[in-house]
Amino acid sequence: MKRFTVLDISGDIGLRAYGESLKDAFISAAIGMYSLITNLDAFKEEKTIDVFTESDSMEGLLVSWLNELIFHFDAYGFIGKRIVITEITPSLSASGGLPPRRGGVGEGEACKLKATISGEDFDPERHERKLLVKAATYHRLRVEKKDDKWEIDVIFDI
């Protein structure tokens, strides 16, 4: 199954990411984002980092997850090749849906994510330079379950 497609929007660029599970869709979004920055094929799994992030909504968690990865790239040059999400809460698999946004049941319930990412530091001599992704945004942001599969739309500021 295709992990992601690129969304065309004026001025910037977006992704539609797919996954069999929520975890899987979060990984697809991350891989998709890395693919906007560079060509992942040329990367090896040389080092591993741990990432932890949280938010008070699932959409917020996605944005902060991707922004965390942008931070590790922009500050330290790290590009992930293999991503394992060890924990995502609430898992949403039982309820089959998202925790309601603000004002609903579950408000204030923290969404958390832990991941281990293997990859390599970007080297402009060896790795392709594609887009400079400044941030993941809330613009047209969507995290949805569709026919047992998960779909994410996210737009990046370029």
Binding site: G11, D12, I158
Partner: peptide, 8 residues
């Protein structure tokens, strides 16, 4: 000001 998206 852009008229074309980056991808376009």
């Amino acid at each position: 000001g852009r008229v074309m998206s980056r991808h376009q």
